[in-house]
Design a protein around this nucleic acid. Sequence first.
DNA 1: ACATCCCCTTAGCC
DNA 2: AGGCTAAGGGGAT
Length: 295
Amino acid sequence: MEIQLNEANTPFNLEHTLSCGQIFRWEKIGEWWYGFVGEKVVRVRQIGGRLLFQAFPENVDIHFIESCFRLDDDLPLILSRINRDRQIDEAIRAFRGLRIVRQEPWECLISYICATNANIPAIRNMILNLSKKFGKKITLDEHDFYTFPKPKDFAQADLEEIKKCKLGFRAERVLEVSRMMEEKEFNLEALRKMGYEEAKGRLMSLPGVGHKVADCVLLFSLGKLEAFPVDIWMKRIILKLYPNHFEQTFVEKILAKRSITPKEYEKISSFGRNYFGEYAGYAQEYLFHSRGHQL
DNA sequence: ACATCCCCTTAGCC
DNA sequence: AGGCTAAGGGGAT
């Protein structure tokens, strides 16, 4: 099946969207990107304004794909709103068509708990190891793929089995969060109806979830587009590109050290939300992808 | 109550 | 080849 993309109304770039570091489990093999939509493996390929896709074991409705890639977002409007200066304009021109992906909250939550103090290749490996050990195998095009495990799969597992997936100190957090979900002590879906602040507060009550992880889950899976995650790269990017929006002593202090305190996080993140507005998360992704490894 | 310091597993990168 | 770093969080002080 395929989706027709109109460049003027629905700009989309599959490559930028899947390789910008927001999502960890999609893989490009040959001309196709392989990933999951729910329990089904899906392969996707873009040729100009055509988005081709096919899911396995059975195909999925076109709306699942549109939803997954947030093709319902009015991207031209969003980009015009966040385009506040020459710096972001440059990023937008370089990566126009990059969209926030609508991930499944559970997988997104575990992914970013694993992302703590790790780099992207390491995160991808953790997620893959967990899926191989606790998920179900599905073979497509002679490649093996594994569904993402359910809370129950981790909750029933032994801590050591989770640690074997190279999670290190994150294993306890994954196990505890899974237990909480399994015992119905926490309702991820309920966060959708809440505002940004309330939903963030709830998420941060979970072990392994601080400001950064909560903002990523809110942005990438719960549709809170004002969320502005600040990792070590975003910290550098913001303080280098927008130093005049902060006190000079603050900029020097923060750039000199590696990690930041919750208060310092809030200062940088709320700048992002206020400066870029209701779609600040999109601005964050464009800046992250364009400047991420140059500073 | 509130800040600051320090540790945490592992693997990628240089 | 070995030291540093990484889409940070939490607990002790």
